[in-house]
């Protein structure tokens, strides 16, 4: 009985220590990434190449999802708003939900699934096939050559993707609200413009997406770098990337939103 309790406690302790250790390791890794970042700016083509892989190749999924999210928002919003006789406010509803929340958050979640997993798998495989070791033996730091360019590419791509998401979402909402439902186009835009604040809504949305960009890309990179160099290790790391990125995005979103609303 006593030993069973002790075992449970030991299990908890082990996990806590384990996670703390990993967290510490990840912070040290983050520091390395920052220290070696100079390389990714001095040799910009490395970073540009990664922007292609993380940003450009994520465009399709981001744009298509944004379009549908915008249309659904308009349909649902109209359904509720018309009960209160204020269906013109649909533009406000669509734009505010997209710019403040859905744009940054959904983009980050899709990014984690599309680009994050690709980064983790690629780096994990490079490690498993000794490419990173080989680089080290050639006196080239893998953090400078492989990790830092991917990090900055992700941080750069995320706000652009989020802005595109919001914009296309608003267009989707417009297409449903105005031609399909018959809301007045002038009211749609003017009410939206009156209520969406540049500083409070749009800039805050961009700040969120930059933070999500840092979090998602970093998690993907760390999991790849930390993955055991086996097929199973890489596949587990990929899963962890999605789970951890999603949790980080949603948690950070809550924290940032509460600060932004209070301030």
């Amino acid at each position: 009985m006593f030993s069973a309790v002790a075992n449970v406690l030991r299990g908890i302790g082990h996990r806590v220590v384990d996670n703390l250790w990993r967290f510490g390791a990840s912070m040290r890794f983050f520091l390395y990434v920052l220290i070696y970042s100079g390389e990714s700016f001095r040799r910009l083509h490395l970073t540009i190449r990664e922007i292609y892989f993380t940003g450009v190749l994520s465009l399709i999924i981001i744009l298509v999802s944004a379009f549908f999210v915008g249309m659904v928002l308009a349909l649902q919003g109209y359904n509720t708003l018309q009960r209160y006789g204020s269906s013109e406010a649909i533009g406000v509803l669509v734009a505010l939900s997209l710019v403040r929340e859905l744009g940054p958050v959904v983009t980050a979640l899709l990014f984690a699934g599309r680009a994050g997993t690709a980064i983790t798998a690629e780096i994990g495989l490079m490690k498993a096939t000794e490419q990173l070791s080989a680089m080290e033996m050639m006196a080239v730091s893998p953090v400078a050559r492989v990790v830092a360019p991917r990090f900055w590419a992700g941080v750069f791509s995320m706000p652009l993707l989020a802005a595109l998401f919001s914009m296309v979402g608003v267009l989707g909402g417009y297409l449903v609200a105005v031609p399909l439902i018959g809301v007045d186009a002038g009211a749609f835009w003017s009410q939206m413009q009156a209520s969406v604040d540049f500083r409070e809504d749009i800039v805050n949305g961009v700040i969120k997406s930059v933070v999500f960009g840092i979090a998602c890309t970093f998690i993907a990179l760390f999991e790849g770098f930390d993955a055991p160099p086996t097929a199973e290790g890489v596949s587990r790391a990929t899963t962890r990337t999605v789970v951890n990125s999603s949790l980080a995005v949603l948690g950070l979103d809550f924290v940032m939103t509460s600060f932004m609303i209070v301030a």
């Binding site: 190449r49 292609y52 914009m167 604040d197």
Partner: peptide
Amino acid sequence: RTTIDLWVGIFAAAGAAALFGLALKVGN
């Protein structure tokens, strides 16, 4: 490399346009 550069250029321009669009058309 030139193709990649072109695509990244398009991406960056579109992203910047979307930001401007949000600021001018959606926001105040």
